[in-house]
């Protein structure tokens, strides 16, 4: 389980990294997903460009309505609130449930999103928050809505020579409430199901995550939540997740009901 030989370079800036990618280099962030793939020789890049320390990749920029987080910030930095939280505790809560601390110390927000594992936590979280992915390529920046970023299992919307530079996260209001229910067999494992519900004034989102595909937004459930009504969650899941077995859909429904139940918990 040793990787096939590859070259390694560290990029000082994002344009430098993009240039290396145009030459066929693959970006390396925390290496927590890419490392195992290299070791198993499932990935055999001729060259890796390390993007963790490229300028701007670890920055935080706050505005009245958003926080822009550099893609190379780690799960642990978010967990420890070394990155200012604009989501009323949602991001630190999610970060704390990812993998084990050793993985969180290295794994990055951007690496996780780009890797696009359907069961990963950030993929569902960013979809729920309505975050915006800031991609950077040879022609400059481009914004991609989170729900359009993951195209399928392990496939993202970036072009070959584009990288994820940052994630723009909308601020939640002080009155916002959320529920995040990750069902997994064992602490630190990927999710069997994720239910995420965010309620912020007139705005609500309900997302079923870890569905072997991009996370599924459930607009009827969100509308019902805003109206204070109950919706037929099972029917909406059946429509949105026809590829899952009834038992697997049931588990997603359980995670969503638990997430909804968390809305009333004080935080």
């Amino acid at each position: 389980m040793k990787p096939a030989a590859f070259d390694y370079a560290r990029a000082a800036t994002i344009p430098e990294a993009v240039a290396a990618m145009r030459d066929g280099a693959r970006p390396l962030a925390g290496g927590q997903s890419l490392g195992p793939m290299l070791n198993l020789r499932l990935a055999r890049p001729g060259k890796l460009v390390d993007i963790k320390r490229a300028e701007g990749m670890r920055g935080v920029a706050l505005s009245a309505s958003t926080a822009r987080l550099g893609a190379a910030l780690t799960h642990a930095e978010i967990e420890d609130r070394r990155v200012e939280d604009v989501t009323r505790g949602l991001l630190p809560h999610v970060a704390r449930g990812i993998a084990y601390r050793a993985v969180r110390n290295r794994g990055t927000l951007g690496g996780s999103l780009c890797h696009a594992d359907p069961a990963a936590d950030w993929v569902t979280t960013m979809t729920g928050l309505g975050a915006t992915m800031i991609a950077q390529g040879p022609a400059g920046e481009r914004a991609i809505a989170a729900e359009n970023f993951m195209l399928g299992a392990f496939t993202n919307a970036l072009a070959e020579d584009e990288m994820l530079a940052a994630v723009e996260i909308p601020r939640l209001s002080p009155a916002a409430r959320w529920g995040y229910a990750k069902i997994n067999r064992k602490t630190g494992e990927f999710a069997m199901a994720i239910g995420l519900v965010i309620l912020d004034g007139p705005w609500a989102r309900v997302v079923a995550g870890a569905v072997e595909a991009p996370p599924a937004l459930l607009p009827r459930a969100a509308a019902a939540l805003l109206a204070g009504e109950t919706s037929d969650l099972d029917a909406e899941l059946a429509e949105r997740l026809p590829h899952l077995s009834p038992a697997d859909r049931k588990l997603r429904a359980v995670s969503l009901r638990r997430a909804i139940a968390m809305l009333s918990e004080a935080r």
Binding site: Y100, K186, E189
Partner: peptide, 13 residues
């Protein structure tokens, strides 16, 4: 064939 699929109990289990 990897520890993703072969699940061992950890300290919390």
């Amino acid at each position: 064939s990897t520890l993703i699929d072969y699940i061992l109990p950890g300290p919390t289990e």
